[in-house]
């Protein structure tokens, strides 16, 4: 009895002060909103439709799954989040949520979201969601992020999968059209994050994360950003070139792509002595706009085409 008593005395009992809002912050709501939006575009772009309520359930499950992977990321990365200005106020490094709570929350929501999507929608989309969570939490967070400057290139696959999951939730299959949607976000990720890494390189260096500017240097990063922008621009137009959308999307995506290359060119021409890095900050801001507008254009194109098809029927 005395032994039990002593063990309790040695442990520090910590009563949680974490509110529901702190747990919600673990889901990375801003990333989740992007996931919801791109998954929704994937669902609407699909040539068939499902029951609207099941569509809402699918979006909800995908959002929760993405949030769960965010919680697992915050559990594992608490040590580096604590030394970066951008992430120091996250729930785990700020002490609002314990690492154990974040891990449990992430695991429970992962299982719940995958099972819900599988049981209520279909198992292909559930498998893709499970793969996305695994890829982000294990392959990217635990392995690539601290190991290679190609971390966000390969890890970008996790963020690019939601439109494919949305497509699979509706069609029960994966097609070239959904692969093109995947490729747009996949090729967008490196220039987006490297633009951020350029003007936040000290933060990443302090945390010991091998981001491209810290490993290959700023000049090499600027060249690679430009190279990726040259790849991204035509892939953005590909849905029109492949006949999936109307010329309306083609014009918008072409203009967006030219804009992206222009901003990346300004980053490429940025002198080494420039520590304010306005071009990199401008590219980072533009890249967010690019992804939102290109998916919004795809969505509008799909909706308009469907309305015209209904009108003609």
């Amino acid at each position: 009895m005395a032994l039990v008593h002593n063990r309790f005395e040695e442990q520090t009992i910590r009563m949680s002060e974490a509110t529901a809002g702190d747990f919600f912050a673990l889901l990375k709501p801003r990333v989740m909103s992007l996931v919801v939006f791109t998954a929704f575009v994937g669902m609407v772009a699909a040539p068939v439709s499902i029951n609207p309520f099941l569509a809402v359930v699918a979006i909800l499950a995908i959002a929760i799954g993405a949030g769960a992977s965010g919680a697992l990321n915050m559990w594992y990365d608490a040590d580096i989040d604590a030394v970066m200005t951008r992430t120091v106020n996250r729930p785990v490094p700020s002490g609002k949520v314990t690492p154990h709570e974040a891990l449990t929350f992430g695991l429970v929501l992962s299982v719940l979201s995958v099972m819900t999507l599988g049981v209520l929608v279909n198992w292909l989309s559930a498998a893709l969601l499970a793969f996305t969570i695994f890829f982000y939490a294990v392959i990217y967070t635990m392995w690539l992020k601290r190991w290679t400057p190609q971390n966000i290139v390969i890890g970008g696959a996790a963020g690019a999968l939601p439109p494919m999951i949305g497509w699979a939730a509706v069609t029960g299959s994966v097609s070239l059209e959904s692969v093109v949607l995947f490729l747009i976000t996949f090729l967008w990720t490196p220039p987006h994050f490297w633009a951020l890494a350029l003007f936040k390189s000290e933060d990443y260096a302090r945390a010991g994360i091998p981001m491209m500017p810290n490993v290959a240097g700023e000049a090499s990063t600027r060249r690679q950003i430009f190279a990726y922008s040259l790849l991204l621009a035509p892939v953005g137009v590909a849905p029109w070139l492949l006949g999936y959308t109307t010329i309306g999307y083609g014009v918008v995506s072409l203009a967006l792509g030219i804009g992206f290359v222009w901003y990346a060119w300004k980053v490429l021409r940025m002198p080494d002595s420039d520590r304010v890095m306005k071009p990199a900050k401008a590219l980072f801001g533009y890249s967010l706009l690019y992804l939102f507008v290109i998916f919004a254009a795809y969505l509008a194109d799909s909706v308009i085409e469907r309305v015209f098809a209904l009108g003609g029927a």
Partner: peptide
């Protein structure tokens, strides 16, 4: 017994409601 502070009680209520 552990006596909860007002902040801890409020946080617990928030979690329970959620």
């Amino acid at each position: 017994l552990v006596t909860l502070t007002d902040k801890q009680k409020k946080a617990r209520r928030s979690r329970n409601v959620a």
